[in-house]
């Protein structure tokens, strides 16, 4: 199953999210007396008719308005047992969130499925500007598949 994430196909899904988010600066909210809120974003991958076995996705807030404070597992059983991994080096040095996961489950999701949920801290009065880059999506055999990625504010649990 390791091959599932070893195959690379670049699929870009770029979107901008305008939301009622506030800007965070590098020094945190408290120094600016900015209001702090915690919000969540659902990350979806739509694999169409293909089964989704693995993925890697790059998420970047161009406005630097948010800070990730948790990465939650996906909705489908195949991705619900363990939250996706994130790349600590990229997060630490570049501020981007690179998520990756694979599943060895018999049943894999098709169509649009929530693969992760990002818990973010936001503050200030500037909207965030998220950009998603689906680096790779693969099926159960590790073969690249065509898919798109989107993110929307999470509702409920």
């Amino acid at each position: 199953m390791i091959q599932r994430i070893a195959t690379f196909v670049l699929i870009c899904g770029t979107l901008a999210l305008s939301s009622v988010l506030a800007r965070a600066d590098d020094h945190g909210c408290e120094q600016n007396n900015a209001p702090v809120r915690f919000v969540a974003y659902d990350i979806f991958i739509d694999a169409g008719n293909a089964e989704l076995g693995a993925y890697q996705i790059d998420i970047h807030d161009n406005a630097r308005a948010s800070k990730v404070v948790g990465v939650e597992a996906g909705a489908h059983e195949a991705f619900a047992d363990k939250p996706p991994y994130y790349d600590p080096k990229v997060l630490n040095n570049e501020g981007r969130i690179v998520l990756a996961a694979y599943s060895t489950a018999e049943e894999l999701p098709t169509g649009k499925t929530r693969v992760a949920r990002l818990h973010m801290q936001v503050c200030g009065d500037v909207d965030a500007d998220f950009e998603l880059d689906l680096i790779v999506a693969a099926d159960a055999d590790g073969q690249p598949i065509t898919a798109t990625a989107t993110a929307t504010p999470a509702e409920g649990k």
């Binding site: 909210c29 702090v36 948790g70 939650e72 597992a73 047992d81 994130y86 801290q121």
Partner: peptide, 20 residues
Amino acid sequence: RKIRGIIRDRDEAQQIYNQA
């Protein structure tokens, strides 16, 4: 629901935790 924790600078993590 399973939420993966994030490694942060200690003071920063403490601050996030207190705010939450």
